[in-house]
Design a protein around this nucleic acid. Structure first.
Lengths: 211, 211
DNA sequence: AAGGCTTTTTGCAAACATTACAAAAAATGC
DNA sequence: GCATTTTTTGTAATGTTTGCAAAAAGCCTT
């Protein structure tokens, strides 16, 4: 293995940070569709190409912002996983908080739940993996809650990790109805109702021993 | 209302059909990413602009093909909703067939489950609504099975339509893990397992009366 | 602290999707 | 057959994305 080490080039962190800050600031003024990569680069004082060097695409840059916002997400989830609550209650509130995160940051949610294909661009792929790790990290908390419930005999025996993935991806599917452009779209109220009911049903199904 | 009627212009159907056929044929040879709208238009013998007149976007054209493919989807679902089966069995096989449809036609599945935004283009919006109607039509069969189960006292009392939406969107969320570009992606085997387990849990939860 | 090597940035050209618009072509209804 | 309307077409312009080569800047060794 040729792991030739080297001190990291400070320029890299610098332009990366300049882009993130410029993009974040610009996005507070202008919706993403009306904001061109040229404009972002101009405000960051770097070349357009640098966006692709660092993030792989315009969506990648946005995703990098979303990844930062996962710190926010962690706060949401902190509210859900409180130890005094029963595991079932924790799942219910995790679902509610996850939905709330979407309602507060719809763009970021979409990028985390349904990341755009990075193509063959290495920077984009790397970023994607990084985001996946963050998501996984969050799901780990759900896994923990489920495992406790299983160990306590409250929930049917099953792989807690798989169960968490089911829960999380099912929520994603439901919440994605919030931005459909057709008649199948659901509004906030409907989403709340749906996610609540679904989580209720699923937890009921978990409590019952397998037939 | 100024509903001035008029005979439909045959040219419209003609170029539409030419585009659909050319696109379908071309897509058998070339993946969508490597197929330009210019090339499709050329093979159809029409102007590029016509694609936008009729379908709103390149994705719209693909979606129109997917809409046609819903006849295929319907056939898959026919296999699931067999009257001799119990409602719960019907749901299980519906889930399995839906997943199979994705496995056989991943591109079409994606367009139906997660339709791209049509923007402000009227043609694209119209197409989107059309697809939504088809999807709704399919879900109606699930609604029917659920309603029967509710009426028979097998399943907790709830709005069958809502339940069907939950089931369908949850499946979408799980199946979407099949094309994630990061470490969270699931392969065919894992998807089967997950969808089966999830449907099992959900139906178990449905059977149990609400606490 | 100088020179060589590597990383990073930059600018440019080209491909592609998309939009807007105006002119051309073709159909309808009378 | 003619006036009106619909549809198609071509073109110019904008924006994202890729590839490439040159320039700039940083690291490392001596």
């Amino acid at each position: 293995m040729s792991t030739a080490k080297r001190q990291p080039d400070p320029r890299r962190a610098q332009t990366r940070e300049a882009l993130l800050q410029a993009a974040e600031a610009a996005l507070r003024e202008t919706p993403i569709d009306e904001l061109s990569v040229a404009e972002i680069a101009r405000q960051a004082g770097v070349a357009v190409t640098s966006i692709y060097n660092h993030f792989g695409s315009k969506a990648g840059l946005q995703a990098a912002l979303a990844e930062r916002a996962m710190d926010v997400d962690r706060q949401y989830m902190d509210r859900a996983y409180v130890d005094r609550r029963s595991p079932v209650e924790q799942l219910q509130s995790a679902a509610a908080e996850y939905l709330q995160f979407y309602l507060d940051y719809p763009d970021y949610f979409r990028l985390l739940a349904f990341p755009p294909e990075p193509g063959r661009n290495p920077a984009g792929q790397e970023l994607n993996e990084q985001i996946a790790r963050r998501v996984d990290e969050q799901n780990a908390r759900m896994v923990k809650a489920l495992q406790q419930a299983i160990d306590a005999g409250l929930v049917r025996k099953a792989n807690a990790r798989e169960l968490a993935t089911i829960l999380w991806s099912a929520w994603n599917g439901m919440i994605s109805l919030g931005w459909r452009a057709d008649g199948l779209r659901k509004n906030e109220k409907q989403l709340r109702k749906m996610v609540t009911l679904a989580t209720d049903i699923i937890t009921a199904g978990l409590l019952k021993p397998p037939g």
